[in-house]
Amino acid sequence: MNNLQEFFAMGGYAFYVWTSYGLTLIVLLANIIMPVLQRKQFLRSLALKQKR
């Protein structure tokens, strides 16, 4: 438990380290999710158009 607390404290630099990692995670995830959602939506609209 103490070990885990120490890990998250990052020797007093927790704010700088975890903000860096968190922000990176958000930006990298968004870069995958956005094009995938856009493609799914586009495929759905194409399928709908073909049905008519």
């Binding site: 995958i32 094009p35 856009q38 493609r39 495929l43 194409l46 399928a47 073909q50």
Partner: peptide, 29 residues
């Protein structure tokens, strides 16, 4: 991974009127 995801979307948008896209969609149904 990110490049392929974006490229696939961009390709589909550009090729929307191509025969292979139409075939793919009609086969998916």
């Amino acid at each position: 991974i990110a490049l392929l995801q974006r490229s696939r979307t961009e390709l589909l948008l550009r090729e929307r009127n191509a025969q292979w896209v139409k075939t793919m969609i009609s086969e998916a149904k």
